[in-house]
């Protein structure tokens, strides 16, 4: 189905199941961008590192690490240390996202100006740019 959707005028955004299974079933067929979402926890970083390994070793596409629920610089540094040299976007811990999820509404509708949503909008714009600038410089 995803293959049939391919079109120059169409952007497909897929939210994959947790883990590596779906990424591995891409079976070497590349996509434009894979965003590996991690939290700054030991478990999530371990899973994210395995996902990033699969993406890079299989050359599946441009790899972006999205560090979610980042509370402080120490969190950001912890993520960066696990993904040296990789394109990184930092999404801060944001009460507006928590509130939106509790209410069952889209964060973009509920809190378009919140810090976390702003980072995601910037990521989308960067990905869509013809020759996107590199991600945030790594510490």
């Amino acid at each position: 189905m995803l293959g049939q959707l391919a079109s120059p005028d169409l952007v497909v955004v897929a939210d994959f199941e947790a883990g590596l299974g779906t990424v591995m079933r891409l079976d070497g067929r590349p996509v434009d961008v894979i965003v590996v979402v991690v939290e700054p926890t030991a478990k999530s970083l371990e899973v994210g590192r395995r996902a990033a390994d699969v993406v890079r070793e299989s050359r599946l596409g441009r790899l972006v690490i999205a560090a979610n629920r980042v509370r402080d610089e120490a969190d950001a540094a912890r993520v960066a240390a696990h993904f040296p040299g990789m394109e990184l976007v930092v999404v801060p811990e944001d009460q507006a996202i928590v509130d939106a999820e509790r209410r069952g509404v889209a964060p973009l509708d509920a809190a378009a100006d919140s810090p976390a949503v702003r980072e995601l909008v910037a990521l989308a714009e960067r990905i869509l740019a013809p020759a996107g600038p590199p991600g945030r410089p790594l510490p």
Binding site: A18, G19, L20, A42, K43, E46, V47, R50
Partner: peptide, 16 residues
């Protein structure tokens, strides 16, 4: 039975 590491961290088992 998760193929992603998780429970090991929560139990405090050293190898995941």
């Amino acid at each position: 039975s998760d193929p992603m590491p998780g429970l090991a961290f929560s139990l405090g088992v050293e190898r995941v």
